[in-house]
Amino acid sequence: MEAREIVFDFLEGYDLLGAFWVTVKLTVYSALGALIWGTLLAGMRVGPVPLMRGFGTAYVNIVRNIPLTVIIVFASLGLFQTLQVTLGGGDNFETVNFRLAVLSLALYTAAFVCEALRSGINTVPAGQAEAARALGLSFTQVLRLIILPQAFRSVVNPLANVLIALTKNTTVAAAIGVVEAAYLMKDMIEAEAQLILISAIFAFGFICLTLPTGLVLGWVSKKVAVKR
């Protein structure tokens, strides 16, 4: 037996890649949800309707100040077990928990997307919106065609931060039994003696996911920057 096999034989029987794949799926689905909902929230916060502005402000200030664990546990205990919200998952606990985790992560992360985007909107000179309004574009057209495209380009880096945080935040889904990377890690630590090595492997796994995210989006940020 080679030394490599002896050191790593404790990995046998564990679906490491499968667990990280769940992490990736959690991240991608909730990132999409957060991006859409966060953009809508940002639109509300800069919009002319006081009720929507109020809602956007209240949402962001409440949601970003609640620990993610509380939100996810509430989704499981409150939405699912008390109110029987299954999000179309039926009797399959695994599916239901996964979907609840995606929902919670998306709702939570949207608050941060909204604020990143709002700071981006503030970098777009007021004259851009004035010129667009003067052409006869409606508020939503001004936002969609002129303001948001420029705002997004200026906040690629802050959004990369949000995405990296989201990737790591998916580990909280372990609290409601979603078998992603952190859940498997806890399992392995309980069953194996290689504590430090196991931790190091999972840390490395997350770096493999997040480091390219940061590097690629950093490059994108330079590429799409609006020159004035």
């Binding site: 002319p48 000179p125 004259g127 851009q128 004035e130 010129a131 667009a132 309004r133 003067a134 052409l135 006869g136 574009l137 409606s138 002129i146 495209p149 420029q150 380009r153 609006v226 020159k227 004035r228």
Partner: peptide
Amino acid sequence: QEGKELARLRSDVGMVFQSFNLFAH
């Protein structure tokens, strides 16, 4: 008032600004 009607009316009124305000993207 601000809304569809105003947008329609603005489309008939051309405006040129001191700082050009061309859409940068």
